[in-house]
Design a protein around this nucleic acid. Sequence first.
DNA 1: CAAGAGGCCTGAGGGC
DNA 2: TGCCCTCAGGCCTCTT
Length: 270
Amino acid sequence: MPELPEVETTRRGLAPHLEGKRIRGVVLRRPDLRWPIPKEIESVLPGQRIDAVRRRAKYLLLDTAAGSALLHLGMTGSLRVLPASTPIGAHDHVDLQLSSGRVMRFNDPRRFGSLLWQPAGETHELLRALGPEPLADEFDGDYLFARSRNRKAPVKTFLMDQGVVVGVGNIYAAESLFRAGISPLRAAGKVSRERYAALAAAVKDILAYAITRGGTTLRDFISPDGAPGYFEQELSAYGRGGQPCPTCGRPLKFANIGQRASVWCGHCQR
DNA sequence: CAAGAGGCCTGAGGGC
DNA sequence: TGCCCTCAGGCCTCTT
């Protein structure tokens, strides 16, 4: 499930294939993904040149002079750059035909992903309420401390709120809280400034490192070498419920928190 | 405003 | 071997 490192890895894989190329045509095999695909994708995008491939939160933005195509990978979305002759497979919903002769193909079995449009100079509604980027300087312990006062929701839920900070999903929330030694069940408003400093540092370290590993869950990758993500080999908590804590050896606890599967160490995380 | 629940969607995996 | 059920979960939207 793509979180920030996977989306960033995708962006880095796509950029050399897309930047400076022109979009020759768009093929939509369904009229909608999570939301209806806006008409501009077919009426405005063809003929545009892609000036840059950017990432904001878990969205990818393909910038053109007319505006930006917004892509979200949802749970199961993937983007690949392929020879135009590559046969269509199941769940291949969208093609962008490139002036290089290749196509960027959007595959998404569960269709939680989206393809949207943002006119030049405007910010799409869905991007407006997003919190800061976790790797930006403005995201730190003091910020988390200030935002969390009087919040009674579990700190894990708070950390996964995209209005608080973007890009941290279930995997990296579990790993960051483990690293910082904070119980995911603790009320967000009851975590000290010092411990939030440790948490912010853990989020930054883990996300940055996961990016260097190519993310956690990308398998069908778009780069020419087809490299998958390797970070899953280094997960301490996520998906390891019942197994020994890497630090103290006691069995890791497992429960749903905020309707999300959660794993933590009842001894090391308080 | 905050918090919790519902819903979207399909493949994987377990049980029988 | 094959069917059925449950689960996975980002994140928007609705309800309380």
